[in-house]
Nucleic acid binder design. Structure first.
Lengths: 231, 231
DNA sequence: AATTTAGATTGATTTAAATCATCTTTATAG
DNA sequence: CTATAAAGATGATTTAAATCAATCTAAATT
């Protein structure tokens, strides 16, 4: 079978889901024979909310936004996903549909693996099943935190938190490329794009950050953290 | 060992977690020998957020509120749990702490089972592990829905939704006992208690519901649903 | 380079909802 | 059976944040 796979084999892949380390070599081989790689350009949709879920998708490289399409076309960005992330959504085990959409932010390399294969492995490899449970729990935990943040913090706190999250967990630097538009930044923090613009401006005025259209530099991390926590 | 267990044996228990049906008789016996029943009076705390998590708790009867303690003592009620519910929280697999609190609303009978026992079973019984994954997914799915509802619906919609949820999923009747205070109803729908009072009043004025201090009757389900969906 | 278009910015206005203050009712304890 | 506390109700006020309406880039396309 013709394959455009960039990664020669799961055996040598270091960017995929950590839980695959728990597979036996036979199981890994099974996955390797049934996987399908694809690349996506920025803006392209990788998973469409509501469509039938047949594959789990693993990000090998690049960044993607995980978002839900809510009422009257309003989106809410749940997470920014990077390499080693399993993308599937809880709907898979509820109604066999993807419960969120995923779109590429940067160029993305991803690996598709059918749920049939994964289910079979879950049924024979308890360690792998446990890893699944841990993955689900971790995501659920983050979701609970997000719920609290979105419902209890004020706009300044939510935006500060988002900036710190980019800096700390994704780019590991005080200065980073802002890959989201103001609109998307609003979908991530549950506020109108105009509010995003205003608050970014305020943070600049107070010399806490320096922001351009497509970049952010954190100047006063302590102040930003205080705003984020007290928000 | 002395036991106050009300349920004589897991074998004959019909109110516990459905996933236990997947246990072999030996496994069920293991659970039965290591379980511990307890009852709680209304208001008593069953799980305290942040405390070390060593047991999964299963509701056998009664209703409980699952809530997170957020910033400056503000609570958010995540769910109203009834019999057959597994209570543990995603924190269990993240930092071995309960990530939410649970308090009895009515008199409650509950069963405590150590995570050690459950982990052991997960490691030998893949069907049971799959059931765990399904349970986590179902809860995560509900959480996503709640996030959308809380962030995108207006107060009227959120309150209407909560009332319909009580009617449809918990009491299975148009008329039911309102077990939550106005304050708690606010914590469930993310609004101030005064707003709850006001909106309940409005719904009464429009003859959509009839509400007393401790009861609600839905008079016009269609209108309530419209408010819930459009809200 | 000129034109078009999408995104960003800014200020003015409106709106939803919280907060505050007060009063009333209901429940609880002495 | 009162006294006290707790919860509920109501109106006035404030606040946060959305919306609206222009205007202003910056990027893409012709």
């Amino acid at each position: 079978m013709f394959s455009e796979n960039v990664v020669s084999s799961c055996e040598f892949c270091t960017n995929c889901w950590s839980n695959f380390k728990k597979l036996s070599s036979e199981e890994r081989d099974l996955v390797n024979r049934n996987r399908y790689e694809a690349s996506f350009k920025p803006g392209e949709i990788i998973i469409k909310q509501g469509s039938p879920a047949s594959n789990a998708i693993f990000l090998l490289s690049g960044l993607a936004k995980v978002y839900m399409e809510g009422y009257s076309g309003r989106n809410i960005i749940l997470d920014i996903a990077e390499h080693a992330t399993l993308l599937a959504g809880p709907g898979v085990h509820v109604n066999s549909r993807y419960s969120y959409s995923v779109a590429a932010i940067t160029q993305i390399q991803a690996c598709f693996i059918s749920f049939n294969i994964l289910s079979n492995i879950i049924n024979v490899n308890p360690q792998f099943a446990s890893g699944f449970i841990e993955d689900l729990s971790g995501k659920s935990y983050k979701m609970h935190q997000k719920l609290i943040s979105l419902t209890q913090k004020k706009m300044h706190g939510r935006l500060a938190e988002a900036l710190l999250n980019f800096s700390d967990n994704i780019f590991h630097s005080d200065e980073f490329e802002m890959l989201l538009s103001r609109q998307e930044l609003g979908e991530l923090t549950n506020m109108a794009k105009e509010s995003v613009v205003r608050i970014l401006g305020e943070l600049e005025d107070e010399n806490i950050i320096r922001a351009t259209l497509r970049s952010v530099k954190i100047l006063d991390r302590d102040k930003l953290r205080i705003i984020s926590v007290k928000g």
